[in-house]
Design a binder for these strands. Structure first.
Lengths: 120, 120
DNA sequence: TTGATGTATAGACTATACTCTATACTTGTA
DNA sequence: TACAAGTATAGAGTATAGTCTATACATCAA
C-alpha cells in the first residue's frame, strides 16, 4: 500500500511515518519495474508493527529503544536463544513499568483517603 | 533544608530542581529575617513530593500533567469532592496505562512464542 | 583573609519526537 | 489537458525536559 493508506489505517500522520522511516523503524520499497515514479510500497505487516510501536510509545518506551528491539528482532545473525533473551529482557522492563505505575496508584489512593478524611 | 540537601536526598540534580521550581512543581522559601543571602529553604515534605513526581514521570506522565495535579491538589478553592474527582480521574489514567503495558507484554510474549517455535 | 565550595539568576545548548514548509515531480479526474 | 491531490526529499520550526555555562554573591574551613 502507499503511504496515504498506511497513514489512514494506523492513524499515524504521513509526516510521522516518514520520520519513522528515516529512523529505520519502518521501511517502504520502491517498485524497480515502475519507472515513472519513486512511490514507496508499504507492506501489510507494517500496520501491525505500527500498532505495536504506538502501544510501546504509550507505555513509555523511546523510539530509540523500540528501534533497537525491532532491529534485533529482524537481525538474521542472531540465534534463536539470543532473540528469546532480548525479548525476555524487554518483558522484564515492561513488568518494572507496571510495578512503577502501581506505586503511583498507591500514592493516589492514599491521597484520596487523606482528602476523604478531610486531612487536606 | 537547602537545595544541595534536597538534591542529595531525592537524587534529582540541583539544575533539574531549579528547572522544576521554575515550572512551579516545587517551591522554596527565602527566610526574610536573613539579610545576608537569598538562599531558599525547602520543606521536608518536598522529598516525598519529588519521589512522587519521579514515579509519575517514570510512569509516563508529563511534567505539565504532574504540575496540573499538584496545583489542583493544593488549591484551597476546590471542594473535597472536587479533589476526590480529580484523583479518581488520575487513577483511571494510571489504570489505562497499566492496561496498555499489558498489551505490549502480550505482544512480546507472542513474539517469544513465535521465535521459540522457529517462526522468525 | 583567602580560596574552595555553595547558592541564585539568566540564558544558551542539547536530545527527543514530532510538525511544517518549500520544492519538485506524478497521478487521476473533469 | 488542466489542475487538484498525492508523493518524495530536504530542511526549518516547535514543544518538552532537561543540562550546562557565565556571572555574581555568600559561606566556611584553614
Amino acid at each position: 500500500m502507499l503511504i496515504n493508506e498506511l497513514s489512514k489505517r494506523t492513524g499515524v500522520t504521513i509526516h510521522t511515518l516518514r520520520y519513522y522511516e528515516n529512523l529505520g523503524l519502518i521501511k517502504g520499497n520502491t517498485d524497480e519495474t515502475v519507472k515513472s515514479n519513486t512511490y514507496k510500497q508499504y507492506d501489510e505487516i507494517l500496520v501491525e508493527t505500527l500498532s505495536w510501536i504506538i502501544a510501546s510509545k504509550k507505555a513509555g518506551f523511546s523510539l530509540a529503544e523500540i528501534n533497537t528491539l525491532l532491529q534485533e528482532w529482524f537481525d538474521e545473525k542472531l540465534t534463536l536463544s539470543a532473540k528469546v533473551e532480548i525479548v525476555d529482557k524487554k518483558i522484564n522492563e515492561v513488568d518494572l513499568k507496571i510495578k512503577q505505575l502501581k506505586e503511583v496508584k498507591k500514592f493516589l489512593l492514599e491521597a484520596k483517603k487523606d482528602v476523604e478524611k478531610g486531612l487536606c
